[in-house]
Each structure stands twice: as C-alpha cells, then as structure tokens.
Design a protein around this nucleic acid. Structure first.
Lengths: 357, 357
DNA sequence: TTATTATAGCGAAACGTTTCAATAAAACAA
DNA sequence: TTGTTTTATTGAAACGTTTCGCTATAATAA
C-alpha cells in the first residue's frame, strides 16, 4: 500500500503532534478550542500553538468537514450577475457571510433554466450549508422550488415571494415604494402623469401598479389610459433600456401631453430619458422622470435620477441572517419555519423631478 | 420505492454497493469511469448506475477531495465588487470556469488590505486549486505576492502587471487604447484637448498617458499643460465620479478654452459630463468627451459615451485559461512558467464626440 | 487513611472516498 | 496438456480530521 510519502508537501495535524510532543487528539482539541480544552494547561496550549505556527499548519477543510459535516460554505445563485441590480445585494451577502466566517460559492444562471439546474446540482454536491437565490428576473417556477426543497438545505430567495410559502424570502415593499414615487410627483404639482409599467408577468409590476392605484384612489388623481404603456413580457434584462426607449417613443407618438413620467425601473427610465431627449423634451424642465431601484448609474446620470431605492445591501444582509439562523437551528436539531421579510423602499429625490411652474 | 435507511440520512457509496450487489470499489470505478472501468461489463455498469440513481446517490466531495487532492474549486478575489468594471470580468471568469466544471469561491476585499489577507487565508485553507485576483484598484504590494507564492497555487492577476514576473497576469493595452482615443478626437478636428489624467500611482495612468504622448509626438499635437489635470492619488473608486467632477470644475476655472476632453476612465468622464452640463457646455455640441473602460452605464448615458472598451469578458476568460492550464500542468507534474497576456482595447464611438464645425 | 473528583492526555474508531495489490475465473497460446 | 494473459471483482489501506471512551495522575473530601 502506498506508504507515507517521505517528501510530503502538506503538514498535517500529526506532524504538529510529533513536533509538539503531544497526541493528535490533544492538538485538535487545543487548536479548535474544543470544550475539552478547558483541561489543557496554558503551557501545553502554547507549545502546540507554536509548533503549529512554526510548521505552517493549515487544517485540511475536507478532512474536517468529512467528520463534522460542516463546511462553512453557502451557495449564492444569481440569475444574472451583469444586472446592476445584483451587485449591491451581492455585496450585502458577501459582507454578512464574511462576518459569520462563511464563504460564498457563486453561481450565475445567466437567466437560463438549464444552467440554474446544473449549478444547483453542483452546489448540492458540494454540500453547501445554505443557499441564497437572487431572483432578479423572471423564471423560477415550481419545479425549481421542488429541486431546492428536495435538498432540504436552508434556502432564501431574494426578490420573489413564492406561492408555496415553504421557502424563506426577502422582498421589497414595491407597493409602498410606488406609492411614494407617484405621491412625490403629485406633490410637485403634476397631474398628467405617464406610466411605463413593468411586464405583466412580474409580481413586482403588479405590486408597483397597486401602489399607484391606491394613491390615485386616495387623492382622486386621474389615471389616463392613454398615458399608460406596458413593457413586453419576455423582456431581456440587458435590453431593458431599449424597451424603455421604445415604449416611451410609443407614448410620445400618441401626442397626449404629460408633465411627468414614472418608469417601471431605472433601466426603463434611462430609456425614457433618451427618448425624451431625442424628442427635444428637457428633463426636468419640461418633464419630470422617476424610476425605481436606484441602481448605481442612476446617481451618475445627468440629470441624476429621482428614484425609489431598494435597500439592496440590507436585502443581502437579511437573506444571510435568515440562512444563518436556519443553519444554526438545524445544527441544534431545531426546525425553523420559513421567514418572509419585506423591506421598505425609500424615495431618493435627485435632479430629474421638478415642481410644475 | 425509494428505500430509506432509518439510521443514516445520507446515502453513501456503500449503500449503492449493497443495493447493486457489488463492492464499493467497483461502484467507485464505474461511477467515475476510472481506467479500470474498461474491464467492467456493460450490464454490471448498468446495474450500478441504476442503483445509484434510484438511491439518489450524491458522492461526498469532501471524502472525494480528501483522497484525490482535487476539488474543482477556484478562488476569485475581487478588490471591490461594486465597481462596475468588475462585473463583466466576473462574468467572463464564471462562464469559463463553468465550462471547465469549476466552481468559484468569491472573495471581496473591499479595497482593504486586511480583508484581502484574511480572505486569502480562508481560500488557502479551502485548498483552492487556482486563484484569480481581480485587481481593479491600487494596493497589491509585494507582501501579498509573497503570500500567494508561498501557497504555490496557480495564480493570475487581472489588471496589474507585477514587477516580479513570477505571477501570471492579464492586462489591457492601455497605451494603444489611449492612442486610439486621442487619435479619434484629433481626426474629428480637435486640437485644444483637455486631459483629466488618472492617479499617478496607477500604472494604467502612466500607460494611457504614454499613448497620448506618443500620439502627440507622431502628429505634432500640442499638449497644453494648462489643460491637464490629475486625479488625486488616494482616490476611492466609489467617488471616482466626484473626483472627475471636481477636477473638471478646476479645469473650467482656468478659463482656457478646449473643444474636447479626454478622461482617465468612464467614471471620471461622468463627472466631467456633469461639470460641463453645469457650466452650460453642451456635449457633444460645444465639447466632445471620451472616456476609457466602457463600463455598463456608458452606453446608457445621454449622450452615450464614446470610450475605449476593455475586453472585460475576454480578460476573465483569458485568466481562467491560464489558471486552468497551470492546474492541469501541475496535475501532470509539469511546471508552467508565468504567462503574461496583454489584450487589445477597442475604441467605441458613440454620441459624446463630434467633429468640430 | 481511602474514596472521590478534577485535570491531562492518549488510542482508536469513525467520516466516505479512491486505489493498490491480490484473487479468481475465463480466454488464449504454446 | 500447461503456462500466460485478459477480464472481472474485491478487501483493505490510506486521505486528515474529530470525538468517544479510557487511563493516570493530582487535588480534594471523607
């Protein structure tokens, strides 16, 4: 049988044991600060620590997790990492995981279902302790959910609330956000407001529109159907701005006057800004524009975009917290039900909106 | 039908062995399609495969890598994931890793040295097979390099060429890119060109400026020192746009006329655009602006920004290719020297530049 | 004094794989 | 016939940890 490699490159716990003059068990106990370490005198500890350091001992995670069934790894499945909406959430996730000493394995589904499934399989093979799904876009039907539940690892979905309630979720209060946005426009004196609504299939579209309707009802604002357009359903996130452009041109073609425009999201708003500029309509001079999301470019724009900020970093943090709680609960043999958090969105007023003269 | 073992929750290779009526060795050989599988008759294989499938057997990666010393994991260390420059590179990396069946562990250094080191330690503990460092920003001095080399795992750095040549790198041809940009402005008739140069400490600043100088020498274009400003050195990537704004205001204060402005990068250019707008200077009507990088927002802007595109996805791909080659080389006990690739940048002409009337 | 308890440490058995060396039958060669 | 090679399968030894149960001494209580 393959005998011990004399010129081995890795230093194991037994090497530390040999060097320090104690057994592997003791070394393990000391280095992990296990309960039993209580009985180990300080000088023994010191000697072991020193030996470990001198040898440059680095515990082998695989051996470790083979025994302990824990590996401090969490899968992060993103639907499309190039979507600017993703990045701050990712930052929030990463930061919170870091504090809990977890490492994220990143999977990017490219908005493709097959890819999602393949990645899911790979992640499960790695025995990830938790899974965070960043569903910035459509898809995500029941089967996927089943896939996830089958693995019965703590999972949380950001940006989508599943019907089946069994999987935790973190979403933003779209309705209240939209309410705030239209309320802002109204407060500036706008009454003829155009709307570029989101794709019908998206739940966030519906929620945001509900917010608008509720505001209209509350104040008596009239919603003119001729000033309402919808983004197409099978919208590709990367061309969101093109869709916004197109639908705004469509709107302008109707020659129905409006003094403000509320876009489904910032990407759409960028498209609208381009269309308005092209039509010679000044923003905010002749028309105010408000978006939703507050993705990074929004503050860079000239004029800087007034929008409804999703607390993206906080969403990431919330997701990690949920997953982390579930993991520790599972480790203690408790079960934790699914948790659903809805975070508040915040209106950010910048330069693209102005009071009516 | 799915039989469950009351004791254990996970199904191991021995369960498959038992069910299929063969030994664990045989199961392993068949499932991995090991060399010895050559001797295994098809029907045996079929029975084993079936048993594995029925039981829902999922090999334990930890046990696996404990034996084989391979784990198909690559560390990806980003200096700041919120930098829009990162995302497309990340996409390139992810995509290429996916094709090679590697999974990335993501580490975000937040531009902090301590965090970089801690993450590096965590990654090494996980026995990553390769490391890709996305150095979109400063830092990265010799010590870190030493840290990396100590671990002697295949490493490639994107965006920075290290003096010590020992670590592979992927960079972009900044000099040629800048040359192309200024050449474009010159071709449009611009002679009074202002420059917002990058921080002196950055090698890319120097390279880009070299490109400008070379062009000036080649054509006799005069570089007016009063039209040149530098971004401060300890620039924070997130406020890059503010710095651009400030330096451009500084430039305008000098009241030295210019018809075009070349910014260090796109972020800076956004700042310049804002400053110009504020001064009532129309882009591109009164002044052309060119950036560098082609980050995502550049195409969204109104006017869409003319810039020099870094082939970010290709950079990611190149990095993975280098690392992958090094890994397989190491697996076959060959050694591969460091590889340095310099990719071409491409001028992308949009709406922020225009010929002089 | 002896009995008990705290303190220190160790050996060995897992954890779930892969792989080497061995075995045994079947096929082939002489 | 006998000897060799090919085919088919296996037991057992690692890989590097952690942890359980055991011993042995020292300190304390009776």
């Amino acid at each position: 049988m393959a005998q011990r490699n004399p010129n081995k490159t890795t230093v194991t716990i037994r090497d530390v044991a040999k060097t320090s003059g104690f057994s592997a068990s003791t070394v393990s106990i000391v280095l992990n600060n296990a309960p039993l370490a209580r009985y180990i005198p300080p000088q023994t500890k010191a000697r072991i620590q020193k030996a470990a350091k001198n040898l440059g001992y680095r515990p082998n995670v695989f051996a470790k997790s083979l025994r302990s069934k824990r590996n401090h790894t969490v899968g992060v499945m993103v639907f499309d990492i190039t979507d600017p909406y993703c990045t701050p959430i990712l930052r929030g996730i990463e930061n919170c995981l870091y504090q809990a000493s977890y490492l994220p394995i990143l999977a990017d589904a490219h908005n493709e279902r097959g890819r999602f499934e393949r990645y899911l399989e790979m992640l499960l093979e790695r025995r990830i302790e938790g899974l965070i799904v960043l569903a910035n876009w459509l898809y995500l039907d029941i089967n996927l959910l089943a896939d996830i539940e089958r693995g019965k690892i703590p999972t949380v979905i950001i940006g989508r609330e599943l019907e089946s309630d069994a999987t935790s979720s973190v979403i933003v209060d779209d309705e209240a956000g939209a309410y705030a946005a239209v309320s802002h426009l109204y407060g500036l004196g706008h009454r003829k407001i155009a709307f570029v609504r989101g794709p019908k299939a998206l739940s966030s579209s519906k929620a945001r529109w509900r917010g608008v309707q509720r505001f209209a009802k509350d104040t008596g604002l009239e919603l003119d159907p001729r000033l309402i357009v919808d983004l197409p359903d099978q919208r590709n996130p990367n061309v969101g701005v093109d869709d916004g452009f197109r639908m705004t041109e469509e709107l302008l073609k109707r020659e129905r006057q409006f003094t403000a425009l509320m876009a489904y999201d910032d990407m759409t708003a960028f498209g609208s800004l381009r269309a308005l500029a092209r039509a010679g309509i000044k923003v905010p001079g002749n028309c105010s524009v408000v978006g939703f999301d507050d993705i990074n470019p929004s503050q860079l724009f000239v004029p800087a975009l007034t929008t409804v900020r999703q607390p993206m970093e906080a969403m990431g943090t919330a997701a990690v917290t949920i997953v982390n709680d579930a993991i520790t609960a599972a480790a203690e043999n408790r079960t934790l039900g699914a948790i659903h958090r809805k975070l508040a969105a915040e209106l950010v007023i910048r330069d693209s909106t102005r009071a009516i003269p």
